[in-house]
């Protein structure tokens, strides 16, 4: 009896955590590169919303999934370009600029949604998970490893590439140097502005993709302010992962697992009001930040503009 219960619990968590974790991870790995170059982008939340609505619109009107994802990425680049110009060129405060981007994305996504669909979202067919005969049917890990949606595998590839780039290539070292001390980077012959622009645009691209992931792969429709803090959770996971893509990925999975675990508990424990279970993802982030993010050492020049000496 107890064994059967634990088996169901574990398989529920293993199957459910990945779709929860991946959209947030998509935004988080972009934000990781972004912050490694010394630019904090709080606008992820707004950019995710823009990616979500643009992805849905393009998919709905063209039925071309790849085009939809690319359009979502493009809108992400556009929005992060605003952030890049403001913070890198005009040296605006990154928190203020990020908040402005958040508001613009939040508002405009709702406006586009209302203008095209009158606030009632169509449902698009979600990109299902792949199915490999025999392998997917393996107990416990079968569906976890072999039965995810295609985007999840692309993101895993991106994780490996991102980790390799940041810690095993010259450009990755340059990027981290720009994030730690842009002046040293400049002396090394690296252009800090170029690296920061590239990193911010990549972060925006990934945030847009993350939004489209949400509407086109997980949910299948859009609603007002649907991210409900996911963009900020992505920022939190970068802190939790100490600017290391592997740890950020692990953090995303932990978050997804905790989330699904409580949803599961919510269905079997009915004596506790469900609102307390709804709080858990946010309390989980608080706990994760507090416990493991304790000794985090941020890139030294994070959130500081680089002023070139004349």
């Amino acid at each position: 009896m107890i064994q059967a219960f634990i088996y169901v619990l574990i398989s529920t968590v293993l199957i459910g955590m990945v779709p929860r974790a991946m959209p947030i991870f998509a935004a988080a790995i972009g934000e990781n590169i972004d912050q490694s170059s010394g630019v904090l982008n709080l606008g992820v939340e707004g950019i995710m919303l823009m990616g979500a609505i643009i992805g849905l619109e393009v998919d709905f009107f063209t039925h071309d999934l790849i085009l939809a994802f690319l359009a979502a990425g493009a809108i992400g680049i556009l929005f992060s370009l605003l952030h890049a110009i403001a913070t890198i060129t005009f040296r605006a405060d990154q928190v203020v600029s990020g908040t402005a981007i958040w508001f613009i994305g939040w508002g405009i996504s709702g406006v586009i949604f209302a203008a095209t669909f009158r606030g009632v979202s169509p449902s698009v067919k979600v990109l299902g998970s792949i199915y490999i005969p025999y392998l997917t049917r393996l107990p416990l890990v079968g569906k976890l490893i072999f039965g995810e949606d295609p985007m999840a595998y692309i993101l895993i590839a991106l994780l490996i590439a991102g980790q390799y780039f940041l810690y095993h290539t010259k450009q990755g070292l340059n990027l981290r140097t720009v994030g730690n001390d842009p002046r040293v980077a400049e002396i090394m012959g690296v252009n800090p502005f170029l690296y920061r622009y590239a990193a911010v645009l990549f972060g925006g691209f990934m945030a847009g993709i993350a939004g489209a992931y949400l509407t086109l792969v997980i949910v299948g429709s859009f609603y007002f302010d649907m991210t409900a803090g996911m963009g900020f959770i992505a920022v939190a996971l970068v802190y939790f992962g100490k600017w290391n893509p592997w740890r950020v990925f692990a953090g995303s999975l932990i978050f997804g697992a905790v989330y699904i675990f409580y949803i599961y508990l919510e269905t079997i424990i009915t004596s506790v009001p469900y609102e307390f279970f709804d709080m858990w993802p946010y309390l989980a982030v608080l706990g994760m930040i507090l416990v493991i993010g304790l000794r985090a050492r941020a890139p030294t020049s994070l959130a500081m503009p680089y002023i070139k000496e004349e």
């Binding site: 605006a92 600029s97 508001f103 994305g105 508002g107 405009i108 709702g110 406006v111």
Partner: peptide, 24 residues
């Protein structure tokens, strides 16, 4: 029947322009 979200985008855009306006 314009959505209330219009006002959020106005706030965001005003924030962005003011920020640039202070810095230029």
């Amino acid at each position: 029947s314009t959505p209330i979200d219009v006002v959020i985008s106005i706030y965001g855009i005003l924030m962005f322009f003011t920020m640039i306006g202070i810095l230029i």
